[in-house]
Every structure is written in C-alpha cells, then in structure tokens.
Nucleic acid binder design. Structure first.
Lengths: 318, 318
DNA sequence: TATATTTGCGTAACTGATTACGTAATTTAT
DNA sequence: ATAAATTACGTAATCAGTTACGCAAATATA
C-alpha cells in the first residue's frame, strides 16, 4: 500500500489491520483445500484442547487471550459440528468442561500436513524478508506490555510541551502573576494566611532583597508558573523552596519539574548545602513532584504556616 | 503472548490481529486526550481529504484500500459531525463529491501536534526493537502481492507430496497398472486405437525388448503414474516419450514432472541426441508439462495415431 | 438509436471480535 | 450462619470492517 508511505507510521494500526485481513482471508481457503471442516477462528481453541485435554471456558480464554464470550461462542459452534463435548463440572456447577470428541481428535491428525505446509510457506516468505515480522511483533508486544502506546504518547506530548516552556528570572512585570498564581491554588485548598500576604504582595522586599530568588515559567510568553528560593535564617538550613505555583491551564508540560530543577541549580550555584520545603500531604501531585526532584521527608521544625503538615529537605552535593 | 511460541507461525494471523487490536484500542483514547472530536477509523479518509481537496467516494476508497461501503458509511458519520460536505457532481449524477468543511479543515491544524507526538512515541518504540515492524510489514505486503499465501501453501503441499513419490523401473507386476492408467485417460478423451492395444497389452515385447524403457511412479507403494521412452526407427530421432499416464487421484504431486525428468535423464545416459513426442492440444496440462520439461513444438512428421495434432521435441545436450 | 455493459454508491446482511450485563454457584468475611 | 464478594459463563448489543445486491447514470456496442 503506497498510501502508508504518505501517512507515515501514525497509520500503523490501519496497516496492521490490512495485513491481518489479507492473511486471515487465505486461511479459510486453506482449510477448504485440505478438506478439513474447521473455521480458522477455531484454531486457537482447537489447539489448546488438542494439547491439554479437558479445559473450562475461561481457562481456554485466558490461555489464548480471547474474551470468554468469544470462546463460549466458538465452543458452541464446534459442539454443533461434533468436534467437542461440553459437560458440567460435578464439584463446581458453574464450570463448563470442554474436551475434544473422537471426531475432533481425528482432525488433530488430519490437520498435521496442513500445518506443516503452512509453516513451510510462511518460513519461505520470512526467508525472503530482511526484517523479521514475527520477531518484530514479539518485541512490540513486549514493549507495549511494559508501557502502553497511550502512555508513551502522553510522555511525548509532555516532553514537547516542556520544550516550549522557558524559565526566566523574576522581573517587576511578573509581580501580578506571582501573586495571582499563588493565590489561585492556596485559596482552592486552604485559607490565605498572614505570612502569605507579606511575601505575595511584596516579593521584591521580602524575598529578592533578602538574598532570595524567584523564577517564572513562560509558555507562549505568558507567565504560567512561579517558584521562589528563599534565604533562611537558620544555621542548619540555607534555602527554602516556596511559593511554587503552576496554572492548572498549563498542566502536563512538566512546568513544576522545570521550575524545581531551576531552583536546585540556582541553590547549587550559590553554594547551598541543602534546600528545605513545607507542604501538605493532601497535595498529592506536589509531594510526588518533590520526591521526583529528590526531596526526602524530614523531622519537624517550626513553621509560620498552619497548612503545613509535612516538611522535606534535599541535601545538595558538596 | 506466550501462547504463540507454542503454536508456531501458523497462528501468524491471530497474533497480528491481537497486536492490531491493542494498538487500535489506544488510538481512540489518544484522540480524546487531544480533545479532537474524531474517530480513529476516520483517519485515512480524513487524511486523503486534507491532502487532496475534493474526492468522490470510490476515489477515496481506492486510495485508502477500503471497500466503498465502508467509506460511504464513514463519510456519513463525518458529515453528521459537520467535518465534511457531500455534493452531487453536476456533470455526472452518480458521483458524490466530498470535501472538508471549515470545521474539518480546522481539525487538520489542530491534529498536527497529536500526529507529531504519536509519531515520536512510535519511533521511540521502533528504536528499542532490533526487528523493524514497519519495514517487515512492507516486505510482507509486497511478497503477498506477488504470490498469495494460499498459492504458496499449495506449492509447499505439492513439493512435500512430490517427495513421497518414487520413480522406479518397470517390473512385470506393473503390467496391469501400465495398461489401466493409460486406458483410463485415453478413453476419457479419445478412442483407443490399434497401435494402443499393441503397446499396452505387450509392453515387454513392444517397448522393452526394442531397447525402450518404462518408468513407474509409486505413491505409498501404489503405481500411480507411468511413462515410456521408446527407441525410434528414424535417422533423425532417437527416442520417443510416450504412454505418459498419471492417475487423477494422484494429482498435485508433480508426478508427471518427475516421470518426465526420469525419462530425460535416462535418454541422456543412453547418449540420445533428442526426444520426440506426440500429443493433442486439447490436453492443456500435458502440453504445459512438456513445455516445462523443455520440449518445443516442431514441424509435422508421420504418426500412426489419429489423436495426434501436435509434435514436440527436446534437443539434448551433446 | 436502441440495447447492453460498466460505473458510482447506497442499503442490508454478515463476520469475528469486543464490552456490558445478568444469573447462578462458590468462596470469603462478619 | 448469614451476608457480601467473587467467579464462571451465557446472552445481548456494539464495532469496524466485509460481501451481496440493487438502482440509477453514463458509456460502449450493434
């Protein structure tokens, strides 16, 4: 299909479906050719029964990777043709135990030649290819089991969006945004406290002039996230990560992570030994972000914020 | 799926279907994620319209490799969502000309990011595989277009059956079979002639004692084909291939071909310059077999058989 | 010019799978 | 011992495609 060279790999699903169809189409004709009264779709069920004697519907379904209604239907069809018999389990009345009949068993022998020839034909095709379809499928199955395509796409999306985000130093024009972004999330979860007003209304005086730093995340030149690195007045702790706020509209762009990284890099360049922070455990995504950045939960320490119920620290390399 | 390691490649179709399903399943969720009101199955149709402007239903179907009813249905659904408009062709009242609406066109832009991300994700998976699924599929498509799986299986079958056939020298116990096999086909097409009775009733006297040879093809120790190499009394021709007969029950095992090869090998070992034969053009499979063996049509020569209307010869290497 | 064939496309029925749901039997928890 | 949860499995509806069929328009042929 020349079409797929134009669309690119996004049409992988469509292309797979077509190849599948082309191959399955011939399967029915092959059974006919060998005069075996069986439908291709029965094959997986037939196979497990021929190998393993008696099985229940769900056991078969699990083994061949179909849904149980699918197996149920197939067994019904095969029973009608006299290839299998169903019988109720005496000790467990729910179970329907299926096994091949004499006629079904006969087919297992009759079908051997066909299987040999099909295998020969497929191997012959494989021998003519430079890329091994069978092994490629096995690899894809494995990789998709590890992480679904969906989640990989989400990851790609996030990475691309993060690339559009720039982290810049605070400037007076971001004063309003600094306040608004913080008020937005604080008021959603808690009540604004006195200490909040102090730093949010006057960041220059209360953070920057006290040897602190503020970073702003820009997306399309819009400020969508902020975070402060505040100099602490404590012999054991050098800096505090605080006032981290990201607009809900700009989620999925790793903005919190980028701001955190910038803060950490800054602290290192300032020769800090550690970074301290305060948060609340109901803020699950925040806590997991701090963990991802390397912060660890630590023992209690005095704080002016009522909403704080967890404290974390990050030990920086010397 | 461990299951497929047990069944072997005969379950290629099933395995393909499952992989297809797994991938398609996520596709729908991906559209949702990007907030695009479109179904994955619309994509091929959408794609060709976004590239090529107006198209008729069948033109789209041909381009994307679907059946036309499928496209017809998809266009109906897309039209309901306002993504496309249909209009009758003025010069050809049968045609239904389809094009994207403004809304549909908007999606082409909106969808770009999604396509980029999906492509990134798929490329990332490909990078982790050692066998390239995409290229492998392309190779399979190409090879299946050249020769279908069905016909390759038929070929494998034939080859395997031919392996069970043995060609042996004539023995008195095959006298009846020699006669019966020949009478069977001759009487189906023609009337037995006087010359037939002579050689069929007394092959020893009329063929073997006159420096001729007879080969018998055995399948399960049953004689299912015969062929004679008869010494000719002609300065220009050394031997005649004649009395070739194969049981209809033993077709598809290349028996004629194997007998022919044996005859030719014998003639060469006897130092013959050529082999002559007589046949009739209504016997299409026979003529094509002779061609395959290397015989060429030649100019007329006297013959005792009424049914002969074509004469062929094979020049042997010196 | 009349008739036969081909073409475009819609509708209907089928296919091989799925998910959703209901019911009965069994197992677990209180 | 009873209630709640789980399990086995069948039926119904759905899905994304197919083939079969029929009608109308256009084209080819006699």
């Amino acid at each position: 299909m020349e079409f797929f060279n134009k669309t690119g790999k996004v049409a992988l699903g469509s292309r797979l479906r077509m190849l599948t169809e082309k191959i399955t189409e011939d399967a029915a004709k092959i059974y006919q050719l060998y005069n075996i009264d069986m439908q291709p779709k029965w094959f997986p069920v037939f196979y497990v029964l021929s190998v393993g004697e008696e099985k229940t519907i769900t056991a078969i379904a699990k083994e061949i990777g179909h849904s149980h209604p699918s197996v149920s239907k197939i067994i019904g069809e095969m029973a009608k043709k006299g290839l299998v018999v169903e019988k109720k389990d005496k000790t467990d009345g729910r179970r329907n135990i299926v096994s091949l009949t004499k006629k079904g068993l006969d087919i297992t022998f009759k079908i051997q030649d066909q299987l040999t020839d099909v295998n020969t034909a497929i191997e012959a095709i494989s021998a003519q290819t430079t890329h091994d379809l069978w092994k490629a499928m096995e690899e894809w199955e494995y990789l998709l089991e590890q992480q679904s395509l969906l989640s990989r796409v989400v990851e790609a999306h996030k990475k691309r969006e993060a690339g559009k985000v720039t982290i810049v130093d605070y400037q007076p024009k971001y004063k309003a945004a600094f306040k608004a972004l913080n008020e937005e999330w604080i008021s959603r979860w808690f009540k604004l406290e006195a200490a909040d007003h102090k730093s949010l209304d006057h960041p220059e005086e209360n953070i920057l002039k006290k040897k602190g730093h503020i970073f702003v995340a820009l997306y399309n030149d819009e400020p969508v996230g902020v975070c402060a690195l505040i100099k602490m007045d404590d012999p054991d702790y050098d800096y505090e990560l605080a006032k981290m706020a990201v607009s809900p509209k700009a989620q999925g762009k790793s903005i919190g992570f980028l701001l955190g990284q910038a803060i950490i890099a800054k602290a290192i360049s300032l020769g800090a030994r550690n970074i301290y922070l305060e948060s609340n455990t109901i803020l699950k995504p925040a806590i997991s972000l701090y963990n991802k950045l390397g912060f660890k939960k630590m023992a209690g320490r005095a704080t002016p914020y009522e909403r704080c119920n967890i404290q974390m620290e990050l030990i920086l390399p010397a």
